[in-house]
Design a protein around this nucleic acid. Structure first.
Length: 251
DNA sequence: AACATATACAACCGCTCATAA
DNA sequence: CTTATGAGCGGTTGTATATGT
């Protein structure tokens, strides 16, 4: 079966873009907007693959790009976000206006990795390089306001919880981020459910994205129709204004 | 000055995901 | 449900430039 190639490779240019190609692409997008990348090259008179056009536009030609050196604040934010999100460059880029995923990825690989190594920190795990076998500590994103150790990380609140004696097999490989809706746990554990209170949420709602079509719980609970779009949990601190989840989406 | 090596970053490739037919 | 397609993402490569010998 397989799939057809994204473009006719035999008749496409590769490598660095020329000024003329850039101008053509800019002019076309100004006139028609971003749209179907596959058909764009032909329509714009470019001998380029659609993917190549998209990349060129997103990474270089977009008018809202910042360019220039990264500031110290951006460095630190990237480090914090990377410790939370891993190599999710597009998500990280979503928190840095004017920066692209490709730019951040390159910057990470060329600058920040070395910077962390010099600090004695493993850039992959964000732990001290010489730290003996990792302790059984799991990083949990929690939105509950509890009086426990919290680290503010670019808007996220991170708590470190010491786990039970049950040890995981490969603690070094445990890079998961546990996202736990705290109120749900609270309801389960120590509060009798009030009448009409939501007992469970579909995944969409638990992420704070209530899609009316797929949502299986929109008819229960207390969320009114007026705010159903943002009902559900305060995912990544959305409601608290700590982090706007929607802004994590790309560009 | 000439060459070797390191660095930075633009661009490509292959894959996954979402969606429409 | 299956398949085809387009878009997007992350890893990797290629090349221009900087630096060292």
């Amino acid at each position: 079966m397989g799939r057809s190639p994204c473009c006719e490779k035999a008749h496409t240019n590769k490598g660095a873009w020329t000024k003329e190609e850039d101008d053509r692409l800019i002019a076309y997008i100004r006139a028609h907007g971003e749209g179907c990348w596959r058909s764009l090259p032909k329509a714009a008179g470019l001998l380029r693959c659609g993917k190549s056009c998209r990349l060129r536009w997103i990474n270089y030609l977009r008018p809202d790009l910042k360019r220039g050196n990264f500031t110290e604040e951006e460095d630190e934010l990237i480090i914090k976000l990377h410790s939370l999100l891993g190599n999710k460059w597009s998500l990280i880029a979503g928190r840095l206006p004017g920066r692209t995923d490709n730019e951040i990825k390159n910057y990470w690989n060329t600058h920040i990795r070395r910077k962390l190594m010099n600090r004695g920190i493993d850039p992959t795990t964000h732990r001290p390089i010489n730290e003996p076998a990792a302790r059984d500590v799991t990083t949990t994103i929690s939105f509950a306001v509890k009086e426990e150790e919290k680290v503010s990380t670019g808007g996220f609140m991170i708590s470190k919880e010491e786990k039970s004696p049950v040890r995981e097999r490969c603690p070094d490989l445990n890079l998961e981020l546990r996202i736990s809706p705290p109120m749900y746990q609270q309801y389960q554990s120590d509060q009798p459910l009030k009448t009409g209170m939501r007992t469970s949420l579909c995944f969409s709602c638990s992420l704070g994205i209530q899609k009316s079509k797929e949502c299986s719980c929109s008819d229960i609970g207390t969320s009114s129709s007026s705010n159903s779009g943002t009902a559900g949990y305060d995912f990544l601190g959305l409601k608290a204004g700590v982090l706007d989840y929607r802004s994590l989406e790309m560009k």
